[in-house]
């Protein structure tokens, strides 16, 4: 389910034709995505999965790796259904 997110990050934030090394790769603390980029990613996720992400949830715990993003998005999907 996280494929769209992975593709989006690779397209927007990684050098051409590079891939994310792992699902645990640190996106924010690793300098791949800055805060403005994160806002962009969030609005992509909101549109892609038709969920809304409150400001309080925009934290490292939820967005620093693909792994935690996936978990967070699934959780949001569950609560909203």
């Amino acid at each position: 389910m996280n494929q769209p997110i992975v593709s989006f990050i690779e397209k927007e934030f990684l050098p051409a034709s590079t891939k994310l090394e792992s699902m645990e790769e640190e996106l924010l603390t690793g300098g791949i995505i800055n805060s403005l980029g994160l806002m962009k990613l969030i609005s992509f996720i909101e549109n892609q999965y038709a969920i809304s992400i409150p400001f309080e949830d925009i934290t490292l715990e939820h967005f620093n790796t693909i792994e935690v993003i996936t978990a967070y998005v699934s959780e949001r999907l569950d609560t909203s259904h």
């Binding site: 050098p15 806002m39 962009k40």
Partner: peptide
């Protein structure tokens, strides 16, 4: 100020 560098290219 917002730097508007929201992806790799603009970075």
């Amino acid at each position: 100020p917002v730097h508007n560098r929201d992806n790799r290219d603009r970075n």
